[in-house]
Write a protein that binds this DNA or RNA. Structure first.
Length: 470
RNA sequence: CGGGGAGUAGCGCAGUGGUAGCGCACCUGCUUUGGGAGCAGGAGGUCGGGGGUUCAAAUCCCCCCUCCCCGACCA
């Protein structure tokens, strides 16, 4: 009996496959106002795991969490010329409140650089107050005309870090540290997504920044997704918001600031980097549910065996869920857990159990094999580690297969239509980005020949990574 | 903003002037359960909103609102 596919196959229509996964895995749906997103419990539990893992690393890097207001006086945004120019088209403003028109409109924050700059200026008095390392977990609004769930929504959830330092060397080093020790480490080791850490070109730079660094990942269809950014803001915001300190020489100096962020867009990246025609595939290190014990039928002691297996797995440190809802058919439940991408299934039924066995199933490969009941709790933790490693290896192989070394711009554009193209930045830097735009290709980031971060886009022998992007 | 399309049950849709329908989902019962179960019964609608024509409007006319696609704009 041929089943019709639950999801649109990736090869037929990748964007539609993506929408199907978001809906069928119960991750999110559209909110009532255009571009807004309702994140459902399972989708939110994935975001919570992302928050937890990043928060550990952010605190390890010395930053502290705090909260700033959603509403910002419009005048704050207009102080930094380049910043306001970058954001003004996508600002949402409150013009009326309390039953009357406001004297000064309030901007719904698109990011908190400006308001936090004001307070940093108040809090920093001397060089002894530096560095000041702050992080916010909040929501922001940018009026998007082409919303897509998780990838680009009018309102989204994120973390935004803001720091102030005593020297250009310190701020630059901290922006790099966040990119490496927080973002890259998290994405590679938890999300199992290999990322290119590089420098953005002037055209792609954050409004008001002197340098923007980014993590770029390849999705299943070969397109790039910016998963996180870290900006060196130089003294641009310090000048405007008067963020100064008294040096140990007694002189008044301007601070050097950074900002850096990752958002719910990463959930979209997770879906598109690892998902397959059966649905989402969540890496074990991230998974809110790492293993599901699936009771096939409650006969022959299977119900009790499933419950005690779930307890044993929990005791072994596995995030486990027991599914004993036998009123729903086995096939339906197996399909649902597969759609949600739970890394391991433990199928417990009377037939296997009569021989003292249960069936283990890997979500990433689909492999299934019998295991003795007593061995399960011991085997699953190792299996989770193996799946994590295999997912990263598979994603890395996919990216490398679709990355070409190009010697001309035209050759690079061809490569960028199906993946990443590496090409000498010297061939592109003088007016070449406009040529790329004709084919919807952009420079995703620049690296040194050794794969390091450039100090300037005028460094010699830089490599440009070209791709189409989300 | 320009061009095109669509608003009818939770979702997907049919219904061109005469009692509001179908599939999936949902509820109850029974039989099932090793890859989206079957049968029987049942619940669920001011047909996007307002106005008009008519004995009679989901259906025809006018106004408004919203959403989707392409373009433009934008990370």
């Amino acid at each position: 009996m041929a089943k019709q596919p639950i999801l649109t196959p990736q090869a037929d229509d990748f964007p539609r496959w993506y929408q199907d996964v978001v809906a069928k895995a119960e991750l999110a749906e559209n909110g009532p106002a255009r571009g807004t997103m309702v994140i459902r419990p399972y989708g939110y539990s994935i975001w919570e795991r992302m928050q937890a893992e990043e928060d550990i690393r952010i605190k390890e890097a010395g930053a502290e969490n705090c909260a700033f207001p959603l509403f910002i006086p419009q005048s704050y945004l207009t102080r930094e010329a380049e910043h306001v120019e970058g954001f003004s088209p996508e600002l949402a403003m409150v013009t009326h409140a309390g039953g009357k028109e406001l004297d000064e409109p309030l901007v719904v924050r698109p990011t908190s650089e400006t308001v936090i700059g004001e307070y940093m200026g108040k809090w920093i008095q001397s060089y002894r107050d530096l560095p000041l390392l702050l992080n916010l977990w909040n929501n922001v609004v940018r009026w998007e005309l082409r919303p897509r769930l998780f990838l680009r929504t009018t309102e989204f959830l994120w973390q935004e870090g803001h720091t102030a330092h005593a020297s250009a060397e310190d701020s630059n080093a901290y922006a790099e540290r966040i990119l490496r020790d927080v973002y890259t480490d998290f994405m590679v080791n938890v999300l199992a997504i290999p990322v290119l850490a590089g420098r953005k070109t002037a055209a792609e730079r954050f409004p008001g920044a002197i340098n923007t660094l980014a993590c770029e990942a390849m999705m299943g269809d070969g397109k790039a997704l910016q998963m996180g950014t870290s900006h060196d803001l130089g003294q641009n915001f310090s000048k405007v918001f008067d963020i100064t300190y008294l040096s140990d020489q007694g002189s008044t100096e301007l601070c050097w600031t950074t900002s850096w962020g990752t958002s719910t867009r990463m959930v979209g990246g997770l879906i598109m980097a690892h998902g397959d025609d059966q649905g989402l595939v969540v890496p074990p290190a991230l998974a809110p549910i790492q293993a599901v014990v699936l009771l096939v039928r409650d006969e022959g002691g299977a119900g009790d065996a499933a419950a005690s297996l779930a307890a044993a797995l929990k005791g072994a440190g596995v995030k486990v869920r027991l599914d004993a809802q036998v009123a729903t058919s086995f096939g339906r439940r197996a399909t649902d857990w597969e759609l949600k991408g739970v890394p391991v299934r433990v199928e417990v039924g009377p037939r296997d159990l009569a021989e003292g066995l249960v069936t283990l199933v890997r979500r990433d490969t689909g492999e299934k094999w019998p295991v003795g009941v007593a061995e399960v709790a011991g085997r699953v933790p190792d299996l989770l580690v193996q799946i994590q490693a295999d997912m990263l290896a598979r994603a890395t192989a996919h990216r490398d297969e679709r990355t070409v070394n190009a010697t001309t711009v035209e050759e690079a554009i061809e490569g960028a239509k199906v993946g990443f193209a590496r090409v000498a930045w010297d061939l592109v830097k003088d007016g070449g980005e406009a040529r790329l735009a004709q084919d919807a290709v952009t420079v995703r980031c620049l690296q040194t020949a050794e794969g390091g971060l450039p100090t300037s886009e005028d460094d010699p022998d830089l490599i440009a990574y070209l791709a189409r992007s989300y």
